[in-house]
Design a protein around this nucleic acid. Structure first.
Lengths: 251, 251
DNA sequence: CGCCAGGTTGACACTTTTCAAGCCGCGTGG
DNA sequence: CCACGCGGCTTGAAAAGTGTCAACCTGGCG
């Protein structure tokens, strides 16, 4: 990656050459490249995903209120999305990892609705929205794919509403850990051992809880032998145990 | 409307004729007809919105798990969307009124993710999704409009997450009443007097509260002179007072 | 007319927050 | 290299908010 970055800085020609290679090999190309495209279509897509951007931990990819003009595919790293209220209260509305798409909130009103902040050094591909619109009029599988991604974001959010509206603290945290575990697994990482990229406070904000409550739940799960926690490191010792925590609630 | 319905049953020819008229005069045509279309494009849209469906109170428009093949534009009436959990718990994830679009949750996985239930006698136009895809490849303003609607659904849901995660009971209920008031106003109804179409329990489910808590908040607002409530009827006496309830929270 | 779903209200229980104190570990600067 | 400081985390005790349970009311519909 360091070598690639050096190349990137040498000439425009090389930039383009590298991008094509990058897309073809990108481990998150499922976002940008639906199955069954012709070579020509793939070339068009490579041209679409035209700008890479690196962010350091704490950097903001975009802020609420800024004009919207591009979506972002997370190549590597980890982001949080945060909405801020008039009175200053804010809430984390989601966490995004490699292979996920950011920025769809901006399409509706032409300005971003939330802040996207990198929780670790990250890299994204920028996808100009107007080009995406054009291209998805030409390539129906791209159109379909994009619609699915938006729809899944709607479904994801209604899952979070469920968490927030119908589950109690420990259930929310068990669900949160299981969700993280499953997403990491889908990306080829260990589903049982990982480092949290966010603080207890950010987890709490996402789950509608205070950081102390999050901390207490972690301690309780630890005492019950379900997980090991050491700062940001988490080892899940009993997936089944975690699942039972919210299946257990018989109403 | 009764007369129109009679006509509808007489012949296919009349059905089509009536639909065109219906779309042109439909008070919710902003969903289906973005501005700036040619007559030909409008005709294509009229053909797209090809089936009307009437539902009685309590009828289900679609259920979670059913195959998805169409979106629905609410012409009149009122719906709730409800997600059910494995363990039987469920939650209301939204209320839809005339001029709103239902069913976008189904695109992502090809099956509906929630139930849509009519809370009063209602009428919807059915929009076959495959036709919408085709047509939005041809008419870019339709494409853009559809993308905006999906994006706004994402933004709406993150607003609800905010409600559920960061606000306390009375704030949620004040926000709920204000939201309802504003949507009714946008449709030409009185923003200060209206009938709730849902029960206290459904409001509570949507807001992550128990029905008793909803009832108590209504009583408190009444005692504070902010609203009058009599069963389902609500009269807002102080919009400002309601706004202060959640602006008031200085943290 | 009577029934029953839906709504209100009170008393009490439980969950989560708040406030406070202290610990840990990492990065910075001396 | 070590000491220090500070953000992040844990834990306890008390307070607040919301849920639970129960009793009763009300209005609409069969």
């Amino acid at each position: 990656m360091a070598r690639a970055e050096l190349l990137r800085q040498q000439s425009t020609h090389l930039v383009l050459a590298e991008l094509k290679v990058a897309c073809a090999n990108c481990n998150v190309r499922e976002i940008c490249q639906p199955a069954g495209l012709t070579q020509e279509e793939l070339d068009q897509l490579d041209a679409l995903v035209n700008v890479r951007r690196k962010l350091k931990r704490g950097d903001t990819l975009y802020r609420a209120g800024e004009p919207f003009d591009a979506l972002y595919a997370v190549r590597s790293g980890f982001f949080k999305a945060r909405v801020t209220f008039e009175d200053g209260r804010d809430q984390v509305t989601g966490f995004s990892m490699a292979g996920e798409l950011l920025g769809m909130d901006g399409i509706g009103h032409g300005t971003h609705n939330c802040d996207a902040v990198a929780l670790e050094d990250s890299e994204v591909c920028s996808i100009p929205y107007s080009r995406l619109e054009e291209l998805s009029r030409e390539i129906s599988s791209l159109q379909r794919h994009f619609h699915k991604l938006m729809s899944r974001e709607i479904v994801r959010e209604s899952g979070v509403m469920m968490l927030l509206g119908a589950m109690r603290a420990e259930e929310r945290i068990a669900a949160f850990l299981l969700n993280l575990s499953q997403r990491l697994n889908a990306r080829g990482y260990s589903p049982l051992e990982f480092n949290l990229r966010m603080t207890r406070e950010e987890i709490g904000s996402y789950l509608g809880l205070k950081l102390e409550t999050v901390s207490r739940a972690f301690s309780k799960f630890h005492n019950d032998g379900l997980i090991e926690v050491e700062q940001k490191f988490v080892r899940i010792k009993s997936i089944e145990g975690l699942k039972q925590i919210y299946a257990h609630h018989v109403s």
